[in-house]
Measured scan of single mutants.
Amino acid sequence: VKVFRALYTFEPRTPDELYFEEGDIIYITDMSDTNWWKGTSKGRTGLIPSNYVAEQ
């Protein structure tokens, strides 16, 4: 598990995607895809765009 911080707010387009706000901490559990990672924030899990976060 790696810890990342959201650089921007992300509004999901599908139920599989995770909503998060700029500054949120996201725990990444799967980075197997280059563009979409699986992450958890505020008790919810979903896909996030990798270019919206920076490693802490």
Rank of each mutant, 00 (worst) to 15 (best):
residue 1 V to T: 12
residue 1 V to C: 15
residue 1 V to F: 13
residue 2 K to L: 11
residue 2 K to V: 10
residue 3 V to P: 08
residue 3 V to I: 14
residue 3 V to D: 03
residue 4 F to A: 07
residue 4 F to D: 01
residue 4 F to H: 06
residue 4 F to K: 03
residue 5 R to P: 02
residue 5 R to Y: 15
residue 5 R to D: 03
residue 6 A to C: 03
residue 6 A to H: 01
residue 6 A to Q: 01
residue 6 A to F: 02
residue 7 L to E: 03
residue 7 L to H: 03
residue 7 L to V: 07
residue 7 L to C: 13
residue 7 L to T: 05
residue 7 L to S: 04
residue 7 L to G: 01
residue 7 L to R: 06
residue 7 L to D: 02
residue 8 Y to V: 09
residue 8 Y to S: 09
residue 8 Y to D: 06
residue 9 T to M: 06
residue 9 T to W: 04
residue 10 F to C: 04
residue 10 F to T: 07
residue 11 E to A: 11
residue 11 E to I: 15
residue 11 E to G: 04
residue 12 P to C: 06
residue 12 P to N: 05
residue 13 R to P: 04
residue 14 T to N: 14
residue 14 T to E: 09
residue 14 T to I: 08
residue 15 P to N: 10
residue 15 P to K: 12
residue 16 D to C: 10
residue 17 E to C: 09
residue 17 E to G: 10
residue 17 E to P: 00
residue 18 L to D: 01
residue 18 L to C: 02
residue 18 L to A: 02
residue 19 Y to N: 07
residue 21 E to D: 07
residue 21 E to Q: 12
residue 22 E to I: 13
residue 22 E to S: 10
residue 22 E to V: 14
residue 22 E to M: 13
residue 23 G to R: 02
residue 23 G to M: 03
residue 23 G to V: 01
residue 23 G to L: 03
residue 24 D to E: 07
residue 25 I to Q: 05
residue 25 I to C: 10
residue 25 I to F: 09
residue 26 I to Y: 01
residue 26 I to N: 00
residue 27 Y to D: 05
residue 27 Y to F: 13
residue 27 Y to V: 10
residue 28 I to K: 00
residue 28 I to W: 01
residue 28 I to N: 00
residue 29 T to M: 09
residue 29 T to P: 01
residue 30 D to V: 05
residue 31 M to T: 10
residue 31 M to S: 08
residue 31 M to D: 09
residue 32 S to G: 08
residue 32 S to N: 10
residue 33 D to W: 03
residue 33 D to L: 07
residue 33 D to P: 04
residue 33 D to I: 05
residue 34 T to Y: 09
residue 34 T to S: 14
residue 34 T to N: 13
residue 35 N to Y: 15
residue 35 N to E: 13
residue 35 N to G: 12
residue 36 W to R: 05
residue 36 W to L: 05
residue 37 W to T: 00
residue 37 W to S: 00
residue 37 W to N: 01
residue 38 K to F: 15
residue 38 K to P: 04
residue 38 K to V: 15
residue 38 K to A: 08
residue 38 K to R: 14
residue 39 G to A: 09
residue 39 G to N: 01
residue 39 G to E: 01
residue 39 G to H: 02
residue 40 T to D: 06
residue 40 T to L: 08
residue 40 T to H: 14
residue 40 T to G: 07
residue 40 T to A: 08
residue 41 S to H: 11
residue 41 S to D: 02
residue 42 K to F: 07
residue 42 K to W: 06
residue 42 K to E: 08
residue 42 K to I: 02
residue 43 G to N: 07
residue 43 G to W: 03
residue 43 G to Q: 05
residue 43 G to R: 03
residue 44 R to T: 06
residue 44 R to H: 09
residue 44 R to D: 04
residue 45 T to G: 06
residue 45 T to H: 12
residue 45 T to P: 05
residue 46 G to S: 00
residue 47 L to H: 04
residue 48 I to Q: 00
residue 48 I to H: 00
residue 48 I to S: 02
residue 48 I to C: 04
residue 48 I to P: 02
residue 49 P to T: 13
residue 49 P to W: 05
residue 49 P to G: 03
residue 49 P to V: 02
residue 49 P to Y: 05
residue 50 S to Q: 06
residue 50 S to T: 07
residue 51 N to E: 11
residue 51 N to L: 09
residue 53 V to N: 01
residue 53 V to K: 01
residue 54 A to Y: 12
residue 54 A to N: 07
residue 54 A to R: 12
residue 55 E to D: 09
residue 56 Q to Y: 15
